[in-house]
Design a protein around this nucleic acid. Sequence first.
DNA 1: CACCAATTTATAATGACTATAAAATAAAAT
DNA 2: ATTTTATTTTATAGTCATTATAAATTGGTG
Lengths: 139, 139
Amino acid sequence: MIINRLKKLGLKITPQRLAILNLLEGNIKHPSAEEIYNQLKPQYPSLSLATVYNTLDVLARAGALQEIRIKAEKRHFDPNPVPHGHFLCRICESIHDLDVGPLEIQTPFNIRDYLVKDYTLYFYGICPRCRKRDRSSNQ
Amino acid sequence: MIINRLKKLGLKITPQRLAILNLLEGNIKHPSAEEIYNQLKPQYPSLSLATVYNTLDVLARAGALQEIRIKAEKRHFDPNPVPHGHFLCRICESIHDLDVGPLEIQTPFNIRDYLVKDYTLYFYGICPRCRKRDRSSNQ
DNA sequence: CACCAATTTATAATGACTATAAAATAAAAT
DNA sequence: ATTTTATTTTATAGTCATTATAAATTGGTG
């Protein structure tokens, strides 16, 4: 239950937070703050972009979701807070989860006197969809 | 020779480019564009911040260096263009190279129909220096 | 239901970066 | 060596995601 997740974090239950968490629940599209705002605005006309940013910040800092900085200009958000690989398609600009087996690491860990609490792993290239499209259009 | 590197890339040899490449040569501090600008300005008073950005962009796109997006607000630059791990200390904000053996991957590679041409691997935590300082101040 | 701290909202501010267009210059052509 | 031309540099204005601000609203405890 989303309400309980908020309660556990000691956060007040507000319609805005519920809406944002609901939108993200099970969402694998990794939306940006603006996309979240635009998708919720019709249902919540009073919603402010600042609230979306605030809420995402609070939730990310509480470890309830994860910020993705795979694109230069914009942040994106993943409801799964556990570090895992992400992929950005250089053609269609879509973002995908991409777990690459042996690369996935448990945090925190120690290496050469560095205490690593967290990590991000970003891949860049061409997604299956665009590869397929490319191949067929080139024939 | 730095001049030859520029020639090989088909770029004109300008004092600004030489200065920037010289500053980066063997530099393991991963400076930002602004830091590069501030360090060079005294010797090259006519230097413009836009030139620093332009040059770094050109060189990065040519594969002569690497942009590091480990910090939210600012880009940093690494003269080593080969993908490798980077570490950001959450206390002193310093950036270090951090190679973690089995994690290092050869690019490009294929995985589940994704064509991965490039990747970034960013670690976050506490650097050896800050850990040491913490330990001694807490006693 | 009243209170108060937390939250939301609208808007202004920030700041890294990019675009622009004029001036300067590297290097090829003469 | 000089001319020529495309590239580069420069100063400055513009962009845009994000953050700060402060007033208005509201969730939840007593």
